[in-house]
Simulated assay, not measured.
Amino acid sequence: MSFDPAAARDYVQALDLAGIPRKLVAQDAATDAGDVFDAAKSQARVIGSSLLSFAQGVDAGVREAISDSALLAQLVANKHASAQAAPLDWYAKYVEVLQNVGWVTQAGAWSDYTTQGTGAEVHEKIIEVLSVALGPSATAAAIVKSAIDALAAMKEGGSWFTIFSRESQHANIARFQVGIVETGANDDVFVSLLACLIKANRGITQVLFFKLQKEQAAFSASSAKVSINRPSLIDLGPTIRKKVRAYQTDYLSSILDL
């Protein structure tokens, strides 16, 4: 089925975000790095419970549109499903929103990586699994690793730490996404996205440093290679931005050069 920009615009405008919490982050929390997208640089940003990296060459308009559409998906999923009680339903809604705004994707199968590989802590396991999903793209893997390392090094009080911890950790459940945006031939845009789910016997704190084996926690993930309907997403950009503008301070971190 071909993508219908008019239907997508109607879809976005009809979404009801009323009741989604706001004023969760201090107004100056998003000032800990340059807040400008730059196609000449590899950059990263936390968007709710997602950590997205942007490879060099992805233009600023695309970065902004992808960031805003990922935020829209986060907000709608938050309203329709409990990340703690129904994390897979949450992710299904997240994917549904992205599909409706020009992301050519579908919810993939979940694999249990608990006993596979050597990753002792969550951030090590993410890098391990994503490196396989990204295949021979060493550059992409290095960018993702830099972003994860940057998030792991963030201190309490900054926008990255505050937003990601709040949106990804829910008692004994952690649910989050890590991805990288790249350009291909003919300026096509692709997102390699890894959705992660951790289930533990006790409360999860500092999720990236959570020791899976020691805590006997289960780690599942679902990876997808997503193509973006670039012209449609850019065209929808102003409509999506208008819808999410009031939530940006609370759910978007600063932009970090990698």
Score class of each variant (00 low, 15 high):
151 L>K: 03
152 A>M: 02
153 A>P: 02
153 A>E: 13
153 A>K: 05
154 M>W: 15
154 M>F: 10
156 E>Y: 10
157 G>V: 11
158 G>W: 12
160 W>V: 10
161 F>G: 07
162 T>H: 04
162 T>N: 09
164 F>C: 08
165 S>G: 12
165 S>T: 13
167 E>Q: 15
167 E>A: 14
169 Q>P: 00
169 Q>W: 02
170 H>I: 06
171 A>I: 13
171 A>S: 15
172 N>W: 08
172 N>L: 09
173 I>K: 03
174 A>S: 05
176 F>E: 00
176 F>R: 03
177 Q>W: 09
177 Q>D: 13
178 V>Y: 01
178 V>A: 02
181 V>G: 01
181 V>S: 01
181 V>P: 01
182 E>Q: 09
184 G>Y: 00
184 G>N: 09
186 N>W: 13
186 N>I: 15
186 N>A: 14
187 D>F: 13
189 V>P: 00
189 V>G: 07
190 F>Q: 00
191 V>C: 03
191 V>P: 04
191 V>D: 06
192 S>W: 11
193 L>M: 07
193 L>H: 01
196 C>K: 05
196 C>H: 00
196 C>A: 14
197 L>E: 02
200 A>T: 01
200 A>M: 06
200 A>P: 02
200 A>G: 03
201 N>P: 04
201 N>K: 13
201 N>L: 10
202 R>P: 04
202 R>L: 09
202 R>V: 10
203 G>C: 02
203 G>S: 10
204 I>P: 01
204 I>T: 03
205 T>H: 05
